[in-house]
């Protein structure tokens, strides 16, 4: 059975896949994580096995999902991989719903809810040559550093209004993968995966925290400093861990370096927004 060993923030993960139809999707989802051979038992053990017409996903021996459709099992694997690694890494690492890139010596975390524009800003940064940490799971350690969690960048379809496919493909900055499956309503869903080639491999101290807000009606780019307390309250909403609010605030306040620069950025054009961010970097 083909086996892949991964290391994510020191957590050992073994993935065994004997379901041929799932292997391509799983390889595409895990392509960016560090490979590491380790002896003994892994912290998390995923297996995907074929049984007659169905594929089944297990984690540490527990049955998670089974389906005749391979893509559905791959989607379940993706969810189980992220959620269980994040749970296992806490409290050593606190996971924020945020993208992080490194650019011109500055580690930039872009935090916000879905649709706020964090993945778009992250993609614009990568096209400008930034190093990729993550687009979704920013792991903040107790020293105020972000540790890479390089999952594949994911588009919910085959196009993005701000980033035409040729622009992504011709940049030379991304590899490409995909998996597809049938949704609950019978609709064919394609998940397009981008693999940034410039990866951050080491933890780096958080320097610039951006709170983006995509606003299609905005006439330009507006950047305003944000008080730390306000940022903490907003970030508390963007943590992946189910903790009481005050505990979230305490953890964030303890971990985010006191000299972190914090800005809110409101924009309609992500490319212009990124240009503004770049102008700010020398002061961070």
């Amino acid at each position: 059975m083909p086996v892949t060993d991964l290391l994510i923030a020191g957590l050992s993960i073994r993935i065994s896949c004997s379901a041929q139809a799932c292997s391509e999707g799983i390889a595409a989802l895990t392509a960016l994580f560090e490979r590491a051979a380790f002896n003994g038992e892994a912290d998390l053990r995923y297996s995907i096995v074929q049984d007659n017409n169905s594929a089944h996903l297990f984690c540490n021996g527990q049955h998670i999902w089974g389906s005749e459709e391979a893509g559905e099992v791959v989607a379940a694997f993706e969810w189980a991989l992220y959620s269980r690694t994040i749970d296992a890494l806490f409290p050593l690492y606190l996971s924020m719903h945020a993208a992080t890139v490194g650019h011109q010596g500055t580690t930039i975390t872009i935090a916000g809810h879905s649709g706020a524009g964090k993945s778009s800003l992250c993609t614009a940064a990568l096209l400008a040559g930034a190093d990729y940490f993550t687009d979704e799971y920013s792991l903040l350690d107790k020293q105020g550093r972000i540790t890479p969690y390089p999952r594949a960048l994911q588009w919910g379809g085959e196009s993005h209004p701000a980033f035409p496919l040729p622009c992504m493909r011709d940049s030379g900055l991304f590899g490409e993968g995909r998996y597809d499956f049938t949704g609950r309503d019978g609709q064919h869903i394609v998940s397009l995966l981008w693999h940034p080639v410039r990866l951050a491999r080491e933890p780096a101290a958080l320097k610039l925290l951006l709170l983006p807000r995509f606003d299609a009606g905005a006439s330009g780019v507006d950047m305003q400093p944000v008080a730390r307390s306000q940022a903490l309250m907003e970030l508390a909403e963007e943590m992946h861990h189910k903790l009481p609010v005050l505990e979230r605030l305490r953890e964030l306040h303890r971990r985010i370096p006191p000299d972190t620069t914090i800005y809110r950025i409101v924009f309609s054009d992500v490319h212009r927004a990124w240009e503004r961010v770049e102008k700010l970097l020398p002061d961070c």
Binding site: A227, R228, S229, Q230, L232, M233, A236, V245, L246, L249, R250, H253, P258
Partner: peptide, 19 residues
């Protein structure tokens, strides 16, 4: 929160926070 000279309050019914 230490060093901020601000107090953050959380409403028990909604979880909303205020500084």
């Amino acid at each position: 929160l230490e060093g901020l000279d601000e107090v953050i309050y959380v409403r028990p019914d909604t979880g909303a926070s205020f500084s």
